[in-house]
Design a protein around this nucleic acid. Structure first.
Lengths: 166, 166
DNA sequence: CCATATGGCTATGGAGATCATAGCGACAAG
DNA sequence: CTTGTCGCTATGATCTCCATAGCCATATGG
């Protein structure tokens, strides 16, 4: 691949983004971080990534400025991963991806996995970029999240299976 | 990987989406389709994918219901790839990805690669999910697209290089 | 006719990424 | 002083992806 063909040297913002997040695991890790899951072990359980994949991806994400590695215990040394501003700014993409998945990658009877409520107006936020109740653009800090019980169970089962199988 | 850990059997809409579009090439192909580039050869030139990758991805995308393969010439047999409704619906994700890339994956002096104008109000649409000029949610059919001259040159150079090197 | 061009792929072999499984190091708790 | 927890690293097999080359059916020009 010569210089001009390489996506490392393109002006296209989509290709630039894909060079950073164009990877199943990276997106799933971001999902976990947005759900408040900041620890290696729990991310491993919920994404299904192998420990090397997870370690490698977190390292790349740190290098790309998406996450910050913070020590939360000195002895034993323990770390948590926190989103940077750049990582936080990825939220709209995840929201759009989620809306597309809920709409186009499910059989109708499954129902939604996640429900958002718009704090500002108290109504359901829906699947669009603006609140379906009040029409205001959705910002992460204005949303409360509720998981479908089946989805919550799925996540708990994954954690139980992970802990059991070590 | 057991059943519950497999992302094929999760309720999570993000994981469902990633199973379909969680791939650099698939997203770049979608970008080309949204730019109106529907032919194998030109997509190969602009994405930099090898012909097998492109053929494999287009086949998978057809199986996943994102694109439709249409014959535009009987003899010699020639095809074009068209977005389905499911493919079209991916537009907001690409828009969000583009906004993130323009904002977070560029040095300030580079400038935007793509400018959107909001037909409904005549003003620039900006980078958010709603028009920065009039505040209305952005729909694809209400937007006109202008490429930065440098980006246009880059694309023309890629095509020239591709045709030259065969 | 025959050579060359065009568009849409397929074939091959090697390089690199990813996987499953196992284990380590530092400490805490019992 | 054994067992458990957390955050990884090591190893070897497998699988994907890439670069390069070529094929097939048809137009097109000489």
């Amino acid at each position: 691949m010569n210089e001009i063909e390489s996506s490392d040297h393109t002006l296209c913002p989509v290709a630039r983004s894909e060079a950073v997040v164009g990877d199943r695991w990276t997106v799933l890790i971001l999902r976990e971080l947005f759900m408040g899951n900041r620890r290696f072990e729990t991310m491993q359980a919920q994404t299904g990534a192998t420990p090397q994949m997870l370690a490698a991806r977190l390292k790349k994400m740190e290098a790309d400025g998406l996450v910050e590695r913070r020590r939360y215990s000195e002895r034993p040394p323990r770390h948590e991963y926190h989103l940077t501003a750049k990582g936080e700014a990825f939220y709209p993409v995840l929201l759009a991806l989620r809306a597309w998945g809920e709409t186009w990658c499910k059989s109708p009877k499954e129902g939604r996995a996640v429900y958002y409520t718009h704090k500002s107006c108290g109504g359901p936020a829906g699947l669009g970029p603006v609140c379906e109740s009040c029409g205001q653009p959705l910002r992460r800090e204005d949303l409360t999240v509720d998981l479908n019980p089946a989805y919550r169970d799925e996540r708990e089962a994954r954690w139980a299976a992970f802990k059991g199988g070590r």
